[in-house]
């Protein structure tokens, strides 16, 4: 009879090992990529060919199918970063640092796209590309927060120290997310209030909700694929940095 001497590790501890995380998640990349492509093909077919005009906005309602998913991702990616920041500060989870760093450029890109598509939708419907109201200004602030976080990651050579500072900054910046969400209720604004996730149900017909939901899932799975891939790259980058340090120390001694 043999006695097990090594303590059994939980999945949470095992996934904290970067090599283990990459080995577990790499097989997910191709299936998720194929799912993303299928969802985009279906979503674009609905959005451009198989959905009606809005009775007030006409065809410009089709901009909603790219605006709402990118606006959702601008906030969802920040939520992923905030949860990762907690993982970094509370559990010192190495993959939480990697997740935070890999998500920031993606969040910045989706926020810029939300602002871009929103202004293109605003011109024909409100008569202006931009208005300094609560929703648009707080989303612009979110873009600046993302850019600040990206700059901070690049400012530190020591990525462990960078992760602590950026995790605190990310959690402080998270206060902007409820401001974006409730800005349309708190202040007078051109932007419409929530019209999909409401206590009394969505205020849209099924024919417009269908392309919206398909595009919503397409963009969300796209983010998951890009985030996973960027996390794998970040794990490799940290290994490169460790090996370069090791080589430099070997050359000195």
């Amino acid at each position: 009879m043999t006695i097990q001497t090594t303590p059994k590790q939980s999945w949470w501890s095992r996934i904290a090992h970067p090599g283990q995380f990459v080995a577990w998640t790499r097989p997910l990349l191709w299936p998720l990529t194929i799912l993303t492509v299928l969802l985009f093909v279906l979503g674009l077919w609905f959005a451009l060919y198989n959905s009606p005009q809005d009775y007030q906005m006409g065809d410009t309602v089709r901009i909603m199918y790219v605006h709402v998913p990118t606006a959702w991702l601008s906030q969802f990616v920040y939520a992923v970063m905030a949860v990762s920041a907690l993982g970094s500060l509370v559990w010192r989870h190495p993959m939480a640092d990697v997740s935070m760093k890999a998500a920031a450029p993606l969040g910045a890109a989706f926020t810029a796209l939300a602002l871009f598509t929103g202004s293109l939708w605003g011109r024909p419907t409100w008569g202006t590309f931009w208005e300094w109201d609560g929703r648009m200004t707080s989303t612009l602030v979110l873009l600046f927060i993302y850019l600040g976080i990206i700059a901070l990651w690049r400012a530190f050579d020591d990525q462990l120290r960078a992760a602590r500072v950026i995790a605190v900054f990310t959690l402080v910046g998270a206060v902007n997310i409820p401001i974006i969400k409730f800005s349309v209720d708190w202040w007078s604004t051109l932007h419409q209030p929530a019209s999909v996730f409401r206590a009394d149900g969505p205020r849209m017909p099924f024919s417009i909700l269908t392309p919206l939901f398909v595009m919503f899932f397409a963009f969300t799975v796209l983010f998951l694929v890009l985030h996973l891939k960027a996390m794998h790259t970040e794990v490799s980058r940290r290994r490169v940095m460790a090996l370069e340090r090791q080589a430099a120390q070997g050359a000195k001694s």
Binding site: Y49, R62, I63, H67, L120, W121
Partner: peptide, 21 residues
């Protein structure tokens, strides 16, 4: 499909998103 009088805004939005993605 015919995107109506505001086609330029719809095309610009989809083209911008496609390029950025």
């Amino acid at each position: 499909i015919d995107l109506g009088p505001h086609a330029i805004f719809i095309i610009a939005a989809y083209a911008g998103v496609t390029l950025a993605v």
